[in-house]
Amino acid sequence: MAEISKKGNSLILKLKYKWSNQPLFSTAIALVIIIVAQTLVLGFDYDSIGSWFISWLNNWVNILRNNASIGIIALGMTLVIISGGIDLAVGSTLVATGAVLMMLIDEGPNGILIKLGITGIPAFIVAILLILLMGSVLGSLIGVLITKGKIPPFIATLGAMKIFRSVTQHFMQGYNPTVPREFLVISNLKFGKYMIMPIVYWIILSIILYFISKKTVFGRQVIAVGSNEKSARLSGVKVERVKTLVYTLSGLLVAIASIVQVSRIGSMDFANAGSGSEMDAIAAVVVGGTSMSGGKGQILGTVLGVLIIAVMNNLLNLFGVPPFLREAFKGVIVVAAVLLQKKEKV
């Protein structure tokens, strides 16, 4: 490979080298192409550059804010998939933690914290801490099922998915909590004209996760476990602990996503919220270049993956493609992305 980079004076060779050696290169290029297309479609029939830019910016803030929650979930999913597993339970965990959160902070007569006499900011803090704990506990339970119970991740999380959602649905039947207006500030605080808090959370968490996966013992051990579990175990990596932690982290991130979601809209459809979001998260991770067989993947790639799917969706929307057909395009993107990625020889 060293020879190629020396010889690669011509642009094409250089591009070719990057294409095959930097996993994120093709993903980034795809994103740029889609963004350019989207910008073109938005059109230029505005009075001035200024008003065009404002509309462009508005569109972007919308895209990012709408996808912050799935973006946060996909971060945890990335680590899970790098570790060689999969987490189908994220959508149900989202709904379960969201439901409990709303029960806790409900302003109505059934609000749990109100009954206990806790209101206002302290109530929010207590509720958020409890929800973060709940997400982590649910995640670690899945982790324990997988490591101690030796159940394949697909099955364990499939089971958890069914259980969490059905239990939530059952208990939330006919119950309509009201989220206090003050709680909505968490996601709806405005900067100038823009509500960017969800985006801020997403960015901060992405940086933290990036840091974890690159610099920490845990983050690198996740790669080792996903790449070659046996070698990792023989090298003194506590494989069970690493795996359990990965699912715990995923659960924690889902809990954060549910806080963002609840505080953004103020309500949740317990039957449908988060359903399919496990697949959206997996799609983003895969489009971002993470290998389903484990060991290979990057947080940054997943962020790009979420963006690609989001912008594509936006583009289809602008084109006026009927909603039912949009899912098909999503499918095409996922498959195409994997087709384009460099594959290992069998």
Binding site: T216, V217, S227, S231, L234
Partner: peptide, 28 residues
Amino acid sequence: ENGIIKDMNILENASIVVWPKYSKRGLI
């Protein structure tokens, strides 16, 4: 099967066993 971890670089392969020993606050 049991030795190398194919998705990691040479240095990481050569140090994985002692990561925990020399880490500070979880950082390698």
